[in-house]
Computed example of a mutant assay.
Amino acid sequence: MDDTLDTTWVLRWAELAQRVVAENRIELMELDRAIGDGDHGDNLDRGFTAVTAKLADAAPDTPAAVLKLIATTLMSTVGGAAGPLYGTAFLRAATAAGEGPLDAGGVAGLLAAAAEGVVARGKAATGDKTMVDALAPAAAAARRVAEVGDSARSALEAAADAAEAGAQATEPMVAKKGRASYLGERSAGHVDPGARSTALILRAAADAAAGESRP
């Protein structure tokens, strides 16, 4: 069996990301309402809906081309901090992905580049209660899988699991970045919406690789 992923996987990822964001829009809004502006779910839903519309009209033929289109679309349609941060993540991922196909090392490199881009753009670190708390562990988990020579699909599954654990771990944290940081100690007790959406989107990536859709 071929253990690499190509353009078809990225296209399927975009499709599943749009679906999972739409399905969890209310949850993301409620998380954001607790410690932010309350619009994270709506903003991401609008952005990924625009992504699927753009991809339906375009015919990108490499992983990098698809990821770049996702990046530019999110930057132009998603409001607040999420647009630039997600856009940067996908743009850095596009540069790392190249023309593909991607093995586990390629997946790990893509996620590492995305995480580094978000850290650089948002000036956030692990423990600041941001999307970095989901994305950085995801990249590290994928790297560990790659180092033992397992498949790209296994790397994405490990990344998704790590992102979900990382997002949940933000609940007791006190926010140090973004609007939530204005709340100080009151930001504790809530899962960070950006970390949660990151986990959802990375689970969509793993599902796309596995050829399945989760409810």
Rank of each mutant, 00 (worst) to 15 (best):
D2P: 14
D3R: 09
D6Q: 07
T8I: 05
V10A: 15
R12H: 13
W13L: 15
W13V: 04
A14L: 09
E15A: 14
Q18C: 13
V21M: 13
R25G: 10
R25T: 11
I26G: 07
I26L: 11
R33F: 03
G38M: 15
G38I: 03
H40A: 12
L44E: 06
R46H: 04
A50V: 05
V51L: 10
A56M: 02
D57C: 02
A58V: 01
A59D: 15
T62S: 13
L69V: 12
I70V: 15
T77H: 09
V78A: 08
G79D: 10
A89K: 04
A93F: 11
A94G: 04
G98I: 07
E99H: 11
A108F: 03
G109R: 02
G109K: 00
G109I: 03
G109N: 10
A113Y: 11
A113T: 11
E116I: 01
A124Q: 04
A125Y: 06
D128Y: 05
D128L: 07
D128M: 07
D133H: 06
A134G: 14
A134M: 13
L135V: 13
P137N: 09
P137D: 04
A139M: 06
A140W: 07
A142C: 12
A142F: 13
R143N: 03
R143E: 12
V145D: 15
V145Q: 14
A146V: 09
D150G: 04
S151G: 09
L156G: 09
A163N: 07
A163D: 09
A165Q: 13
A165I: 07
G166Q: 00
E171R: 07
M173C: 05
K176E: 10
V191K: 14
D192L: 08
R196T: 09
R196P: 01
T198H: 01
I201N: 05
D207M: 00
A208S: 06
E212N: 08
